[in-house]
Design a protein around this nucleic acid. Structure first.
Length: 811
DNA sequence: GGCTCGCACGAGGAA
DNA sequence: CGTGCGAGCC
């Protein structure tokens, strides 16, 4: 019996039918839509292949066609194919497309998933070789950090001078390079005040005790196992006869070694990537891996995909112009048959707030069709920023004008406090010896169990050699923890036990094999009301007092958190039990909201990789912000080149319209600071750029009347600085061009549409609630805009439809 | 033990 | 300007 068959639950492969062999003689319609280069990449099945795929050149299409081709020609059975991606989204898309292209069901499932998800599967099969049990837990960054903090303080290190966060980064770095504590090179011995390596060893030991791994371990353990157990490696070399890797330029050393070990026998490995889109150096990715491919795999077949199906010639030319400044590229020349279209648009602003205001207005204009362009829907537009803190300006502005937006990849759903708390409860119910989960929730909600009580629990558990839950039980029984806290702790321990029993209780599906141990759960009521895992989850959240805690919380976030908890419970529906859910969540961290309303997307450039939009805004192109000063300080030219690739990624996300902007002044840490336009602005080829000169910036009074520009004195100061801003050669050049063509068209004036319902439903002084700003009182009404004095956020103007009457009576 | 206040420090990106 | 943490008070 092969356990490969249960590897994935994708619907596309669910109905088993024809064998691969039976399809061998079938037609291959999927080849018809391919251009010659793609076709070459698809049909070269044996030996190493490097597919250099520029942005928008149809690499996913080629990759999926290759999988289909392997199956159709009978070269491989599904489970002999290993296809690795970086994100779950990419994996999902590939699965769907393979399913669609195949047009018929196949027997078995390819190993298609992220590095991490595949490694989890492998590691669970061989856990004992890493000193683990196969039901190990996967810690996320938060757990990891808490564990490290404990070790750091136990070692008597001043975590002010040596933050645990820093140690976490160092350890991650070692793991990315596939270095176990014993293999850390002497050159790194000084790391973290000469204690880094020792703490790393302790950390690994502690993880083993907890039967846990962190993200880095998933690969590190597998590489170590492959290296130390040739028999295991050979087994997988035989199984995975064809290997495909997406985004190869993003692989780190550990991933590279893992792939090379697996491929070293048959060498049937096809790596797809684009050195120009390598933007993850900071988390250990080595561009060198892709640059070195032909050396690593002599005789490799290199295919370049250069025909772009996404962007207009102007956009491609602008992107090429920027990326040309990088050294040591493999080199590709993108071309397209698309129509000329708009030039890349460039605009400077006085400050960051004006930039947000302009983009807001431009988005609204573009919805209606402006400057001779077709109308764009909100779903067709995106704002891509360098750093997530840039998002706030847009969120604030869009909330004010009532422009619907969605933030992609913000704080992820499963990283939110309330979700992590709830998950900790679930984890504890599933595995009562999950000490980290226990620590997280012993005193959440407040149970009067502070440091002292928690220390007592730790001591008791340690001296009895048991888990924290059991330690807590002993501590209560032996009277070490008394009073209110003691009672509450007893109640918690009892509840955990009760939930645990309910979970193991009879949840039977039709025809399941019942070798479960009913007998040792004596008080489980047989034949009593059956409790589904969903009901159980609700029960846990209710009886623990966790839901109540947020119901009593009056902060503006509380309602949202309760919403999230509801969503969490809803998410359980697609799983059979809590265990399955927890396993899934540890690795799937994406936050897809599938609401139907049209919204403009806001995300970081990193999050935008692999996506495309008809219209893209790229704000904040200022030296220091983009390219990021920190990146340049830390990694010098290498860092700058990575930033430049990021710029390239940004521009190439655009299909039809790309708008780049920068601001002369920006608030940073609450202080106004002036900045020069990004050097990347100078690198944009002038003939493909259209400079939109805002009338307000150079002598006009536009915009002076509105909103919160810097005060007069700050303004003057900034203006003086601003004079330099436009002295850079590139800017002068661009401005001269703008002059020749005449100033751009004056901004159109618009009347705000007044929503009568909204106007009538609020009165002065009324207490209201706003999703983002919380509670406040109305101090002004103006059309559909309300001026509200928020308790936490101060006075803001907000669109009425984002405000609801508060039923909460103050005092 | 919990809460509030004030201070110091900090914003790069993520499975 | 925001958060996170420690001190000091209830």
């Amino acid at each position: 019996m092969s356990s490969f068959d249960d590897f994935d639950d994708t619907e596309a492969f669910e109905q088993a039918s024809l064998s691969a062999r039976a399809m061998a003689a079938r037609p291959m319609p999927y080849l018809d839509g391919l251009n010659p280069a793609q076709r070459e990449a698809v049909e070269t099945l044996n030996g190493p292949v490097l597919m250099l795929a520029g942005a928008g050149t149809g690499k996913t299409k080629a990759l999926t066609a290759r999988i289909v081709h392997l199956l159709t020609t009978g070269s491989a059975r599904p489970n002999e194919i290993l296809a690795v991606t970086f994100t779950n989204k990419a994996a999902r898309e590939m699965k769907n497309r393979v399913g669609g292209m195949l047009g018929q069901a196949i027997e078995g499932v390819p190993w298609l998933g992220t590095f991490h998800s595949i490694c989890v599967k492998l590691l669970r099969r061989h856990a004992e070789l890493a000193g683990l049990k196969s039901n190990f837990t996967i810690l996320d960054t938060d757990d990891q950090l808490r564990l490290l903090k404990q070790l750091v303080s136990a070692a008597g290190i001043d975590d002010k001078r040596w933050p645990a966060r820093q140690l976490a980064n160092i350890i991650d770095g070692w793991k990315n390079r596939a270095l176990t504590p014993g293999k850390v090179p002497a050159a790194d011995a000084g790391a973290y005040n000469h204690k880094g390596v020792g703490l790393y060893a302790q950390y690994q030991e502690r993880l083993r005790e907890l039967n846990a791994v962190d993200f880095g371990d998933l690969l590190l353990h597998m590489v170590t196992i492959f290296q130390d157990h040739p028999d295991v490696l050979q087994q997988y070399q035989r199984w995975f006869r064809y290997i495909l890797v997406d985004e190869y330029q993003d692989t780190n050393v550990a991933q590279y070694l893992w792939l090379r070990l697996l491929a070293s026998g048959h060498r049937n490995i096809c790596c797809v990537g684009d050195d120009d889109q390598s933007i993850y150096g900071w988390r250990g990715a080595e561009v060198g891996n892709i640059l070195r491919f032909e050396k690593d795999f002599p005789g490799a077949h290199v295919v370049r995909l250069e025909q772009n199906y996404r962007s207009t010639p102007h956009i491609l030319a602008a992107a090429s112009g920027v990326i040309d400044a990088n050294e040591g590229r493999l080199g590709k020349t993108l071309w397209t048959e698309a129509q000329e279209g708009e030039k890349v648009r460039l605009i400077g602003h006085w400050d960051g707030e004006e930039e947000a205001r302009w983009i807001g207005e431009e988005v609204e204009s573009m919805q209606r069709g402006t400057r001779g362009m077709r109308p764009f829907g909100l779903d067709e537009m995106a704002i891509l920023v360098r750093a997530s803190h840039q998002m706030r300006a847009f969120e604030d502005r869009f909330l004010t004008i009532g422009l619907p937006y969605r933030v992609i990849g913000g704080p992820r759903f499963y990283e939110r406090m309330e979700i992590r708390d709830a998950m900790a409860y679930f984890r504890l119910v599933v595995s009562p010896d999950d000490d980290l989960a226990f620590e997280r929730i012993v005193n959440t909600p407040k149970r009067g169990l502070g440091d002292k009580a928690q220390q007592t629990i730790q001591m008791t558990a340690r001296s009895n050699g048991v888990s924290l839950v059991e330690g807590a039980a002993i501590a209560v029984e032996s009277g070490l923890i008394k009073g209110k806290g003691g009672n509450q702790l007893r109640h918690l321990v009892e509840s955990l036990g009760r939930w645990h029993e309910m979970m193991r209780g009879p949840i039977r599906a039709a025809g399941d094999d019942e070798d479960a141990v009913i007998d040792d759960g004596a008080e489980v009521p047989r034949g009593g009301p059956r409790v589904s895992h969903i009901e159980l989850a609700e029960m846990i959240l209710d009886e623990s007092g966790y839901t109540e805690m947020w119901q009593n919380d009056k902060t503006p976030e509380a309602p949202g958190r309760l919403e999230n908890l509801k969503e969490l419970v809803k998410a359980l529906e697609s799983f059979e039990n809590l265990q399955g859910f927890l396993e899934h969540v540890a690795l799937i961290m994406d936050n897809e909201s599938d609401d139907a309303e049209q919204k403009i997307s806001i995300m970081t450039l990193h999050a935008a990789k692999g996506l495309e939009f008809p219209a893209v805004f790229l704000p904040g192109w200022e030296d220091g912000l983009f390219p990021s000063q920190r990146s340049m300080d830390e990694s010098g030219l290498k860092g700058l080149e990575e930033e430049r690739r990021l710029a390239y990624v940004g521009i190439t996300r655009a299909e039809e319209v790309c708008t780049i902007s920068f601001a002369a002044n920006r608030r940073v840490f609450g202080q106004w600071q002036s900045a020069l336009p990004s050097r990347f602005v100078d690198e944009l080829p002038a003939s493909h750029v259209d400079v939109l000169t805002p009338p307000g910036l150079y002598g006009g009074g536009f915009g002076a009347a509105s909103g919160a520009a810097p005060g007069p004195s700050e303004g003057l100061e900034a203006k003086a600085a601003g004079a330099n801003v436009y002295n850079s050669p590139g800017w002068k050049r661009l401005q001269a061009r703008a002059g020749q063509r005449g100033m751009s068209q004056p901004k159109e004036t618009r009347n705000t549409v007044i929503d009568l319902d909204a106007v009538s439903s609020f009165t002065m002084g009324e207490r209201v609630f706003h999703q983002k700003f919380g509670y406040g009182a109305i101090v002004g009404i103006e059309g559909d805009k309300l001026e509200i004095d928020f308790e936490k956020a101060g006075v803001k103007k907000v669109v009425a439809r984002f405000v609801s009457a508060s039923d909460d009576i103050p005092f």
